[in-house]
Design a binder for these strands. Structure first.
Lengths: 185, 185
DNA sequence: CGATTCATGTAACTTGTTACATGATTAG
DNA sequence: CTAATCATGTAACAAGTTACATGAATCG
């Protein structure tokens, strides 16, 4: 069975331990959402689909609150293993800063500088918040994975901020305006 | 007027010079598609919308073939300037390798190594193809933008491949299996 | 003259977000 | 008691892909 985008994150989260849709959403929102988001509108229907397909089942837990928790079945564990074992990895990026930079040459040099500064600042701020807000919480991780991915997120944003900084320096150093563009707009 | 995602790339492409929907699609497919894609199903309806809104107009060019070319109007140039001047920059990443890595700890160490190797190889291959297939064509760029963005693409993919390589080394060096996870699946 | 490319367009489908409806439980 | 949080779910919408239909022009 081919897992949907949301099915992948749901199955993975349930592999760590039994959870409700609400739990999954909360965990996704402060972990994978930076590279793999999921909304209630996807999670709840997907839980039903996975249950129908026999990959997950209700966990028996009863508590004070109404709650529909799920756990992985043996078939679900197998589906997760299959997916993790496939070498294919979707990689999609939608980066408006790069799109703006692509067109920056239709204007003046200042446009490029402003675009690069905005991109630099945005990446620097994400890296900073990962370091100060999330890393302390994730530091004592029990399981391989989350902390490594967080470190990737920090490194990626610092790489991007650095690249922008160096690009700004190049543009500022570059004296001849002729190299910039035709100023079509 | 708020530009749609496709409106942004269409307006930018027309700022460089008059183009048809077919032209735009062809250019997007070998340039911005890595960070800002667009399909015919979006481009043609968007051209109509932008024309109705007065941001673009038919270019007068007639040729042998049937062709509906467009150019920017003054209002379109203003809309493009407004958009380029806004500091906001959408940044969305969907990275299945990171998602797999996030869950790698539910299995054995070998899973993590395979995931990291796949991600490393994919990024290395993109960087290689940018360097050998695209950079030679883009080298003599007249306008600021495309070449800088290409260099970002190369640097980003090399960063990611490097990070994976170093993560692989860390995992291989790390002897104590206990640090790996509970092996839930 | 037949294959390819140029060229436009749409319909069906899939995916995903947002906002809302609903109501129970718990903390202060 | 009341505000916040827990919790599930759906409807409406927005965005985007794929595949197809259509046909003209060009290349070999």
């Amino acid at each position: 069975m081919e897992l949907s985008a949301t099915g992948r994150v749901v199955l993975g989260m349930l592999a760590v331990g039994p959870k409700s849709g609400y739990d999954i959403k909360a965990i996704v929102d402060h972990s994978t959402r930076f590279f793999w988001a999921a909304s209630y509108g996807q999670i709840y229907p997907e839980l039903k689909r996975l249950e129908t397909a026999g990959l997950i089942a209700a966990d028996g837990r009863e508590g004070g609150r109404r709650r529909t928790g799920y756990r992985l079945t043996a078939a679900g564990a197998e589906a997760l293993r299959d997916w993790l074992g496939e070498p294919e990895q979707i990689h999609e990026l939608r980066d408006e800063g790069l799109l703006k930079l692509f067109f920056a040459g239709v204007g003046e040099r200042d446009w490029a500088l402003e675009i690069l500064r905005s991109k630099r600042d945005a990446h620097a701020e994400v890296a900073r918040s990962f370091r100060t807000d999330i890393e302390p919480l994730a530091a004592g991780a029990e399981r391989f994975g989350p902390l490594e991915v967080l470190h990737y997120g920090i490194a990626y944003n610092e790489f991007a901020a650095d690249w922008c900084e160096r690009a700004i320096e190049r543009v500022e150093r570059d004296e001849q305006d002729g190299a910039f563009g035709a100023g079509e707009v």
